[in-house]
Each structure stands twice: as structure tokens, then as C-alpha cells.
């Protein structure tokens, strides 16, 4: 075969290879950085991570300090946030997908929610400070924090739930109507159970976000040094990210070790939540393989 006919192909092959290498490194470099970062945290923090650390109060002495109030504060906060935001967000999604007429107002609301999802969290903090802490007089309470967090994750829950509802095919709804179901029955007994795994996945991811958020909590006044456990929604509280921030900002290197250990706890929780959501999705997809 004449040489001039082969050349373009040879060049394409090189381009092909180059492109492959570019893509591969685009994946590997960030992964590597992440692994180095996590490795560093793990190596620094692991020695400090013991039962004592998990069950002690913060202290001026780094070797005595622990994250018990932070863990409880975070759990309390997330629990309340979930109780407030999930029913609200899922109901809003149901309204938008199943009831609302698709008119201009609907599209304005839709775009607004999408925009709200990308508003920086510190803005939500300011909003929470103005409304919940000051105007409603909730002070620096867990409730004020949870309400603020709820606002923050509401757009995410609405968007993911709407997608989940939207994914339930028209044919399934028709099938349900054809059996003589009311709209309420159709939504409650067929559409929601069908969309449930995807709604749950979205909810877990939103909750995971709420655990990690720091900025709004600083603004609404979570305290970092606390010597009691939060007992009611109106207690003052601290949360894991706040505790970490506090320790990092201290000059003594021992506190940095504490911060690393707390980061490990926080990351493990979030990875666990993400893993659960992936697992649920996997299970359901496998069960409903030919849907």
C-alpha cells in the first residue's frame, strides 16, 4: 500500500493516544491530590482516635479534649434538619411534579429553586441569623441552626425529588388511573413507592451536605467551646465542622492532631452516608433491571 495513504491514519492514532493520556491524567491527578490529603489527615489523626476522644468534652489540654458534644450536636442538628426539610422538600416536589399547572409561574419557581441550590451557604447563614436567631428570637439554638440548614438543603431535596418523580413513566400513572384510582391514590400508592429509592438517595446526599456545612453555623452562632450536652432543641450547641475549625485555628500543634482525628470521624460519616445511597440505588436498579 502506498505510504501517503497510511499517514493520516498514523497521525490519528497518535492523536488518539494523546487524548487518552490527557483524559487519564485529568482523572489521576485530582485523585492523587485527594489521596495525599486524606493520607496526611489519616496519618496525623489516627493516633488520637480512640474511645476517649469520642466520649470527652473539649478541653484546654489537647490530650484530654474530645468531640462528644460536637458529635451529639451534629446528630441533633441533622436529625432536626431532616425532620424539617424532608417532608417540606418532598411535598414541594410532589406539588410541582403532580399538581402544578405548567404555566409561567411554574417556570419562574423552577428556575428560582435551581438558583437557590447554588447560592453560597454563607448567605443562608445570614438569612438564618436575621430570621431565626433575631426576628424569631430562637437565639443560638440547635433549632435555629437546623432551620437554617433546612433552608440550605431544601432546594437540593426539591430538585432531586422532582427528578425522581419525573422518572416514573407516564404509562405507570395511566395504568393506575385505568384501575380507577384517584390522583391521591396514584401518587401515594404507586408514584411515591416507585420513586422512593431515588428520593431517598437525594435525601441522603442532602443530609450529608448538611453534616459538612460550616459557614452557616458560624453565622447563626454555634459555639465551639461547650461543657454540656445539648438537651433540647433550644440548647446552645456545637457541631463537628465547628469543632474542627476551632482546633485548626489554635497555635498548639497538638490541637491540629485533634482536628485531624475529628476530620476522620466527619469524613467517615459522610462516606458511609454516600455508600448507603449508592447501595440503595444499586439494589433497586438490580431488582428492577428491565424497567
Amino acid at each position: 500500500m502506498p505510504r501517503y495513504k497510511r499517514q493520516p491514519i498514523a497521525r490519528h492514532r497518535i492523536v488518539d493516544k494523546l487524548f487518552f493520556i490527557v483524559c487519564l491524567s485529568a482523572m489521576i491527578i485530582p485523585m492523587l491530590l485527594l489521596i495525599i490529603l486524606l493520607g496526611d489527615v489519616l496519618i496525623t489523626g489516627i493516633e488520637r482516635l480512640n474511645l476517649n476522644f469520642l466520649t470527652s468534652f473539649p478541653s484546654r489540654k489537647p490530650q484530654n479534649a474530645g468531640i462528644l458534644p460536637a458529635i451529639l450536636g451534629s446528630s441533633y442538628l441533622v436529625l432536626l434538619t431532616g425532620i424539617i426539610a424532608l417532608p417540606l422538600g418532598i411535598s414541594a416536589a410532589i406539588y410541582m411534579e403532580e399538581y402544578s399547572k405548567k404555566n409561567r409561574l411554574y417556570y419562574i419557581i423552577e428556575i428560582t429553586i435551581a438558583n437557590l441550590a447554588s447560592v453560597p451557604s454563607i448567605i443562608y447563614g445570614m438569612l438564618g441569623l436575621t430570621i431565626f436567631v433575631r426576628a424569631l428570637g430562637l437565639e443560638r439554638s440547635i433549632l435555629a441552626g437546623a432551620l437554617t440548614m433546612s433552608l440550605l438543603i431544601l432546594p437540593i431535596i426539591i430538585i432531586t425529588s422532582r427528578e425522581a418523580l419525573h422518572a416514573v413513566p407516564r404509562t405507570i400513572r395511566d395504568g393506575c388511573y385505568a384501575l380507577g384510582a384517584t390522583r391521591w391514590q396514584m401518587i401515594w400508592q404507586i408514584v411515591l413507592p416507585t420513586a422512593f429509592p431515588n428520593i431517598l438517595t437525594g435525601a441522603i446526599l442532602a443530609i450529608a451536605r448538611a453534616i459538612g456545612e460550616t459557614a452557616p453555623l458560624i453565622i447563626v452562632g454555634a459555639v465551639s467551646y461547650i461543657t454540656f450536652l445539648p438537651i433540647s432543641p433550644f440548647s446552645e450547641f456545637t457541631a463537628l465542622p465547628i469543632q474542627i475549625l476551632n482546633w485548626i485555628s489554635r497555635p498548639q500543634p497538638e490541637f491540629a492532631v485533634n482536628a485531624s482525628a475529628a476530620i476522620i470521624v466527619l469524613l467517615t460519616t459522610m462516606l458511609l452516608l454516600n455508600a448507603i445511597s449508592i447501595f440503595i440505588r444499586y439494589r433497586v436498579n438490580k431488582q428492577r433491571n428491565n424497567w
Binding site: 413513566p169 404509562t171 405507570i172 395511566d174 395504568g175 393506575c176 388511573y177 385505568a178 384501575l179 380507577g180 384510582a181 384517584t182 404507586i190 413507592p193 416507585t194 422512593f196 428492577r288 424497567w291
Partner: peptide, 19 residues
């Protein structure tokens, strides 16, 4: 709704409830 309970409809594409 009551009418549809007396007149059933089977669709072109099978649509069992996935859940």
C-alpha cells in the same frame, strides 16, 4: 374514577407497577 373501575384498560406497553 368510578367509571374507570367498571371499564378497564390494558395498554399497548406492559406497565406493571415496579414497586
Amino acid at each position: 374514577i368510578l367509571l374507570r373501575r367498571r371499564i378497564g384498560l390494558v395498554f399497548q406497553k406492559p406497565n406493571p407497577f415496579p414497586s
